[in-house]
Nucleic acid binder design. Structure first.
Lengths: 104, 104
DNA sequence: GACTCACATAAGTCTGTGCTTATGTATTGA
DNA sequence: TCAATACATAAGCACAGACTTATGTGAGTC
């Protein structure tokens, strides 16, 4: 779950799409395949990459494995981005608005 | 300068290191090579990737080309991250502190 | 216990990419 | 104008990674 792994995991468009689908709600590997023209092993491999990058978490339930977004991964990216905060002052207003939304 | 390009550009550790050096201040391609065991063409290719991803900007000055961080790229990542803001409420306090810092 | 289902893992293929050396192209200075 | 400097581009190589089919594994079902 290093910085390397995270950006590499997100570099693949398919994995980003999978992650996006998980953001809509928890799903198992079979449900995730719906809409993707992808073999079962391919999806399994993508999920393994996302998991080892700390972007998704899994939870076994019988013979199903439920996957969900792991906030730790996003926090890692946020932390990386934070190092370069000096370069996006124009985003301050948007952040303020975001925080207001979250307070409500 | 799409989402794809940005994450792919940052997936390479060498390119992230180059970007980090540029965050310290504007540098030309030769200055950037210092400390890297990398050929001149390799650096040139990395810079081309970072540039086409919108992460760095260039400015020709005579026979030198000065590179600097392009905030647009960081803003792209920030925007992507913003889509998943629901998953990192625990970061709110840090953000608030950040904004206070930036106000001063 | 045999079968099916939901996954993971193995092994092989093919494409992408990061590196190299070699060469091209402006720009500067003698 | 000729050489040197600062970089980009070309071409080729080697490895990484995204995919496939085949197989393994563990949990439910009959």
């Amino acid at each position: 779950m290093s910085e390397v792994d995270i950006f590499k995991a997100l570099a693949d468009p398919t994995r980003r799409a999978v992650f996006e689908r998980l953001a809509d709600g928890e799903k198992n590997a079979t449900e995730l395949r719906e809409g993707f023209a992808l073999s079962q092993p391919a999806m399994s491999q993508h999920l393994a990459v996302l998991r080892s990058a700390g972007l998704v978490a899994e939870q076994r339930s019988g013979r199903h494995v439920h996957y969900r977004v792991n906030p730790d991964g996003l926090a890692q990216i946020h932390q990386w981005l934070h190092r370069y905060r000096a370069f996006w002052p124009q985003r301050v207003d948007e952040l303020k608005q975001l925080l207001q939304e979250m307070d409500q």
